[in-house]
Design a protein around this nucleic acid. Structure first.
Lengths: 255, 255
DNA sequence: CGTGATATTGATACGCATCAAAGGTAGTGG
DNA sequence: CCACTACCTTTGATGCGTATCAATATCACG
């Protein structure tokens, strides 16, 4: 037996149930699991070494074997079109689950890459399925996770098909804000883990447009921007913009 | 059909297994269910009277209680934006399952309305969940159904954010073609159950653009169009257009 | 057969992509 | 530590694709 495995076992012994101790416990998979069953969930989860920026968690068209709960960091998922360009399909932050797109084909339909140093809990899917049969609530929670993904995708479709560039970016900012809030982090001041180019790709906009709109928001005192650090200054206005009711207000001095 | 036989069929309604007799059996939920368990699935399914065009199967913001397998006809799902406009999120044909968007909130996040006379099998979700615990394969099939929906939504996002109007419409036509084929119907000549306006709404295009592109395709001999009846004349070209490699071919005469 | 919904076609306007170039940031090696 | 390189971001000028407005034409249905 390789020594690595031995070390892994020892490592597991030292920290009895990592799920129970994890700070993301209240928003991750364990929410659906009775404390008595948590050991069983914990036992199938594998912890791997952290990914560095640019490292892939999985590649498109490779066999689907596991889903991943993000402990820290952030990932983007993307597919590659026939013409070879990349299409970003989502951003995933700590406390969220990524990799569910491969379930129906047993092949990943997208790739996932770390946007910054990121560590994940790997959850082998066939063992999770077995467990879902046995643990009340886990199956249900899983249905919900997937349903949520369906709904968020449909929200995004709405964005992409109906809204202006300003509204798209406002919506993304509000979505990120909400997700940070869920983790008890500041919902008005946070760091964008992805590049402008990723944002543009995700929202169906050119990089230049993204950049222009960030500065426009800054001029309108809606947003404070310093590189990847942003600060929501006027949430109401951002909501209005996101909904498409801008009123063309605050356009510097006018008249 | 003689009336005596009709009565016999009606009588069997109460005793026999409709899923087993249904022509959509090979592409509907029963594919995942062992024949011995089919009665249990069948027993929780409720058949309702057919919906007429414009009738709603469920409304946004009403409690989520069931999912629906479509026996015949077609539905569209849509959400209503804050500004009151409708956003079509999907079209659902016979053999497909609709209504999974409400799982994570227990509230429907969209409405579903019949595009033509439509009949569905109503499957109460909590009973289905119980059954999924007991019937091997049903839980898994369900994960797959939802995963497929996630993936098709992400495909659509790609369409909406990256592709031209022509490519979007070509893609929709090819998607419908494939789904008809799955039902052993003609994959090159079929009827569009939805209006031009629905298509435009779904694809993020103005009605006028949809109309223009249909006529353009017709002029290019790619498509035959007679109202809602369409006929794919040049599938290869349609694929090229859908992928964005038009070559600007057949654009009138060229030297 | 009429009446409202749906579809087609044309003319114009605007939002955003694209092209081009400069300024800024991060990571690398001497 | 600084210089160097490669990438990322910002800003400006121009053009294209599609929305929008407007006017028929056609269909569906009572």
């Amino acid at each position: 037996m390789p020594e690595a495995l031995n070390n892994a076992v020892i490592f597991r012994h030292q920290t009895a149930n990592q799920c129970a101790e994890c700070s993301l416990n209240p928003i991750c998979l364990p929410v659906a699991v009775d404390p008595d069953d948590l050991d069983r969930l914990d036992s199938i989860i594998q912890r791997t070494r952290p990914l560095h920026r640019g490292d892939h968690l999985y590649w498109e068209e490779t066999p689907f074997e596991a889903i991943y709960a993000i402990k820290a960091g952030a990932l983007k998922a993307y597919t590659t079109t026939d013409s070879g360009e990349e299409q970003v399909t989502g951003f995933y932050l700590a406390g969220e689950v990524v990799g569910m797109d491969g379930i129906h084909t047993d092949i990943h339909m997208s790739s996932a890459v770390a946007l910054e140093t990121t560590s994940v809990c790997e959850i082998p899917f066939n063992r999770l399925q077995d467990l879902a049969h046995e643990i009340p609530g886990l199956q249900n929670h899983f249905f919900k996770l997937m349903s949520r993904e369906i709904q968020s995708d449909q929200q995004l479709m709405l964005l992409l098909s109906k809204k202006t560039a300003e509204a798209r970016i406002a919506s993304l900012l509000l979505s990120l804000s909400e997700r940070y809030k869920r983790r008890r982090l500041s919902d008005h001041r946070f760091r964008l883990p992805m590049s402008r180019s990723d944002i543009g790709n995700y929202l169906g906009l050119a990089v230049e447009t993204v950049s222009r709109i960030f500065t426009r928001f800054q001029n309108q005192q809606v947003l404070g921007v310093e590189g990847k650090e942003v600060c929501i200054l006027d949430r109401e206005q951002l909501c209005r913009i996101s909904a498409g009711n801008e009123d063309s207000v605050a356009q510097t001095s006018r008249g």
